[in-house]
Simulated scan of single mutants.
Amino acid sequence: MSDSSVQHLVFVRLRCRIQAETPLRLPEFSGSALRGGFGMALRKTACAQPQRSVCGDCLLRRQCVYSLIFETPVPENSELLRRCTAAPHPFVLEPPEDGPQELPPGGELDFGLTLIGRAIDLLPWFLLAFEELGRSGLGGKVGGRRGRFRLISVRQGERVLYQQGKLTANPLPEAAPSAFPACGSLRVLFHTPARIKYQEYFTERLDFHILFRSLLRRISLLSFFHCGQRLDDSGFADLIRQAESIVTVSHELRWHEQERWSGRQKARMQFGGLVGAAVYQGQLAPFLPYLALGEALHCGKGCTFGLGRCSVEWLGQQEENACKK
């Protein structure tokens, strides 16, 4: 059964705090190191056949926690992504924002973790993986080895879910707001590079309908594969036409290039995208739930690394006039 509402798409936003036990060195954008280290630690923790180099022919592929979280296979005879080998992953990492980090022993830092749909119930596996990553080491080598750390707490807002090695409370699922302020203009800010494709190419001009198409695709796939419900797509064509009528008042987005090391491909890869802000004006009400989900779930490619993190600001008339100048 399909549904046009997005209220069933649930998630939890968590803040994890770690404490360095040995000198810990992280690059300017640590999302790649954090995600890669987490993947290896999760495989070490959850994989029943670690001698295999790939998951594709494993008998446990569709029951394995590692495969579900980090490979996310497309079910046989799936209604969506039939020609793809993997679906969007049910988590988002938000690395520290302060650039390169040099933590001495005892130093602490926070990073964000968002779990989506059925991954919420797998929180203990994420915790075990981060504990293992702390023992194995993270980031650049100092004195010949990567920095070790201890996971000291995980919070959801003011609620402490994990502390001193124990899960003390269960996360409370969140959903997109159902009510929004009346507004004709808003500003979308991208805090980390947004890698958004349109007509097969990464775009450097983010008109509203391109942003909406990207959000709609991501939200639809996460809903189908991780929340057990396919969105009713009968009205999507009309929504896209409406999105094309939204005016770009101000476009202050720029392409920010960066690199990441791919452990799987043993090579450095370009990993750039758009950062900055754009202001849009028009009949925005139908799109607000999708934008709200974009704030939680990110937008574009590379979201599990922390890319595409955005926030939305509602604009008053005075701010709107200032943007037009």
Score class of each variant (00 low, 15 high):
111 F>I: 03
112 G>D: 02
112 G>H: 03
113 L>H: 00
113 L>A: 04
114 T>L: 06
115 L>N: 12
115 L>I: 10
115 L>D: 12
116 I>T: 11
117 G>Y: 08
120 I>M: 09
120 I>W: 07
122 L>K: 15
122 L>A: 14
123 L>C: 10
123 L>Q: 09
124 P>G: 12
125 W>M: 11
126 F>S: 15
126 F>L: 11
128 L>F: 13
131 E>W: 08
131 E>T: 14
132 E>C: 06
133 L>P: 00
133 L>Y: 00
134 G>R: 04
137 G>T: 03
138 L>A: 06
139 G>R: 03
139 G>V: 00
139 G>T: 00
142 V>Y: 02
142 V>Q: 01
143 G>R: 02
144 G>H: 00
145 R>Q: 13
146 R>W: 07
146 R>D: 02
147 G>H: 02
147 G>C: 05
147 G>F: 02
149 F>R: 11
150 R>F: 01
150 R>K: 13
152 I>N: 01
153 S>F: 01
153 S>G: 05
154 V>Y: 07
155 R>I: 03
156 Q>A: 09
157 G>C: 10
157 G>F: 04
157 G>E: 06
159 R>S: 04
160 V>H: 06
161 L>H: 04
162 Y>P: 05
163 Q>G: 04
165 G>F: 10
166 K>S: 14
167 L>R: 11
167 L>T: 04
168 T>Q: 06
168 T>I: 12
170 N>R: 01
171 P>F: 07
172 L>E: 07
173 P>I: 13
175 A>C: 12
176 A>Q: 02
176 A>Y: 07
178 S>N: 08
179 A>F: 06
180 F>D: 04
182 A>G: 07
183 C>V: 15
186 L>K: 04
186 L>H: 02
187 R>E: 12
187 R>W: 00
188 V>M: 07
189 L>Q: 15
190 F>C: 12
191 H>I: 01
193 P>N: 04
193 P>K: 05
194 A>Q: 09
194 A>N: 10
198 Y>T: 07
199 Q>D: 14
201 Y>Q: 10
202 F>Y: 15
203 T>E: 10
203 T>W: 09
204 E>I: 11
205 R>D: 11
207 D>M: 05
208 F>R: 14
209 H>C: 14
210 I>H: 11
210 I>Q: 09
211 L>D: 07
211 L>N: 12
212 F>I: 13
212 F>V: 13
214 S>E: 02
214 S>G: 06
214 S>K: 02
217 R>C: 11
217 R>D: 12
